[in-house]
Simulated assay, not measured.
Amino acid sequence: MGGVAIRIAGEDDRDLVVRLLDEAFQDDPVSRWVFPGQEYRRRTHHRLMAAFTDAALADGRAELTEDGAACALWLPVPAGEDGPAGADATRDEAAEDVPAQVREAVDPDNERVETVARLTEGIHPRGRAHEYLWMIGVLPHRQGEGLGTLLVTSVLDRCDREGKAAYLEASSARSRGLYERLGFRCTGPALDLPGGPRMWPMWREPQTL
């Protein structure tokens, strides 16, 4: 993958990132569970991708291949916190109900938007500071070129230099295998969404250079 440039996405890239993630995740098992039915998903799914993108641009880091074919959303999680909801609580000591707010903003009548947020929050490791790979998407016609691996390893290399751990939830057996090859290991029992697919919480210790 030599020659593929990666840059930090900014506010001017918001619409591009939302469109990219929307297209990349249309057939993802978790997206299909949250938004069942192709037409419904095409009408609504992009709102959730927009919420995730806005959160990453505000509190984290969005990395984008220069050609706009792939993007990864990362959030830094300080010690003692537990992912996006915990990060939000640092700004608002009232500890707002983030999953409920996301549901209200994205699709108020769809309880699965809130359910998946609560369940993933519940399995998120607590205690140690880490980088959270919230989402990574590659346009369907560009998948299989190694762009996803390139994006992930660019941040993992930084984690290794800084002695920092990384965490994610794999949403398919295929992606779980990819992440295992990059040094991630399952942290505990898989999360089975009610009547839906399985997700695997995965943790990676910093590697010795």
Rank of each mutant, 00 (worst) to 15 (best):
165 A>K: 02
165 A>F: 08
166 A>P: 06
166 A>F: 06
167 Y>C: 08
167 Y>A: 02
167 Y>G: 06
168 L>C: 04
168 L>D: 01
168 L>H: 00
168 L>G: 00
171 S>I: 02
172 S>F: 05
172 S>Q: 03
172 S>W: 07
173 A>G: 10
173 A>P: 12
173 A>S: 15
174 R>Q: 13
174 R>V: 12
174 R>F: 02
175 S>I: 05
175 S>F: 02
175 S>E: 03
176 R>Q: 14
176 R>P: 00
177 G>F: 12
177 G>I: 03
177 G>M: 12
177 G>V: 09
177 G>Q: 13
177 G>S: 13
177 G>W: 14
178 L>T: 09
179 Y>C: 03
179 Y>T: 01
180 E>R: 09
180 E>P: 02
180 E>V: 05
181 R>K: 14
181 R>W: 07
182 L>T: 00
183 G>C: 09
183 G>M: 04
183 G>D: 11
183 G>H: 02
184 F>P: 00
184 F>K: 03
185 R>E: 15
185 R>M: 10
186 C>Y: 05
186 C>Q: 14
186 C>L: 13
187 T>E: 15
187 T>H: 15
187 T>Q: 13
187 T>N: 11
188 G>E: 09
188 G>A: 11
188 G>K: 04
188 G>N: 02
188 G>P: 06
189 P>K: 08
189 P>D: 13
189 P>L: 11
189 P>C: 09
190 A>R: 03
190 A>H: 11
190 A>Y: 07
191 L>T: 05
192 D>Y: 12
192 D>V: 15
193 L>G: 03
193 L>C: 09
193 L>A: 10
193 L>V: 08
193 L>E: 11
194 P>N: 10
194 P>H: 12
195 G>E: 10
195 G>Y: 06
195 G>T: 11
195 G>I: 09
195 G>C: 10
196 G>Q: 10
197 P>K: 07
197 P>F: 09
197 P>D: 05
198 R>Y: 13
198 R>G: 05
198 R>M: 08
198 R>K: 13
198 R>Q: 13
198 R>P: 00
198 R>D: 04
199 M>E: 11
199 M>W: 08
199 M>T: 10
200 W>A: 07
200 W>Q: 04
202 M>T: 00
202 M>Y: 06
202 M>G: 06
202 M>H: 04
203 W>L: 04
204 R>Y: 05
204 R>H: 07
205 E>R: 01
205 E>D: 07
205 E>V: 00
205 E>M: 05
205 E>S: 00
